[in-house]
């Protein structure tokens, strides 16, 4: 299992568009992908659940990838989430 912490820098947090982008990336990989936010564990393959988490700017998010291609998945997600603008 791989873990990475990132801080959301985007002013408006994770809104509809970035939420769907994150789940699009997560769905490309066979491994399980979760986001840990405010002690909640969210399935990152569900745009609905990411949106419902209401992730605001400056929030710390931990990305968890577990399974096949976990290295690639975490790398791509980390880069995407860091650079949401």
């Amino acid at each position: 299992m791989k873990k990475e912490r990132v801080i959301i820098e985007n002013e408006t947090g994770i809104h509809a568009r970035p939420a769907t982008e994150i789940s699009k990336i997560a769905m490309k990989y066979p491994c399980d992908v979760f986001l840990l936010v405010n002690e909640k564990k969210i399935n990152a393959k569900s745009p609905l659940m990411i949106m419902a988490a209401g992730i605001k700017t400056k929030t710390e998010v931990e990305i968890l990838c577990d399974g096949e291609d976990e290295d690639k998945a975490i790398e791509e997600l980390k880069n995407f989430i860091k650079n949401i603008s």
């Binding site: 509809a16 568009r17 769907t20 789940s23 699009k24 399935n43 393959k45 569900s46 745009p47 609905l48 659940m49 949106m51």
Partner: peptide, 16 residues
């Protein structure tokens, strides 16, 4: 198009 695409993704979300 992007808005409706996002809408479509939500509709396809298995959680729903």
């Amino acid at each position: 198009k992007e808005i409706i695409q996002a809408y479509l993704m939500i509709l396809q979300d298995p959680t729903l």
